[in-house]
């Protein structure tokens, strides 16, 4: 898994590439929680996530819950089809804000 953090449309974008799984989710969790704890409005770009497992999903949920506590925005953008199917398995698409693009997230 690789990641980069950038600013776009006034939002912090954490873009992940590859697999977010048992081996890599601790690092994804660290990145997300660090950004959320800095009270930055955060969107996770998941367009290049090939696969996400339960531990990766748990990292997203934890960051989402943490963002709610700090009062910052948290959402997912451009979720890849395989990742979306895993989120749907847990019915998380009904709870986590999901946007087609960063621009759409910024406009929301």
């Amino acid at each position: 898994m690789e990641h980069e953090v950038r600013e776009e449309h006034g939002l912090s974008i954490a873009a992940f590439r590859g697999d977010i799984d048992f081996n890599t989710s601790p690092e994804a969790r660290r990145v997300l929680l660090e950004l959320v704890e800095n009270r930055q409005d955060l969107m996770v770009d998941m367009s290049s996530v090939d696969y996400i497992d339960s531990s990766g999903v748990a990292s997203l949920i934890e960051a989402f819950q943490s963002a709610k506590t700090t009062g910052s925005r948290f959402g997912l953008v451009a979720v890849s089809p395989p990742a979306l199917r895993v989120l749907q398995l847990a019915h998380l698409e009904k709870v986590l804000p999901i946007y087609d693009s960063v621009a759409a997230a910024a406009d929301a």
């Binding site: 048992f22 989710s25 601790p26 339960s54 748990a58 949920i61 934890e62 398995l89 019915h91």
Partner: peptide, 19 residues
């Protein structure tokens, strides 16, 4: 088998129970 934070594991437990 894994090295996860306690909070991550707690969320996974709730997720799998919901499954």
């Amino acid at each position: 088998h894994a090295k996860l934070a306690e909070e991550q594991m707690d969320i996974m437990v709730r997720m799998k129970l919901a499954f």
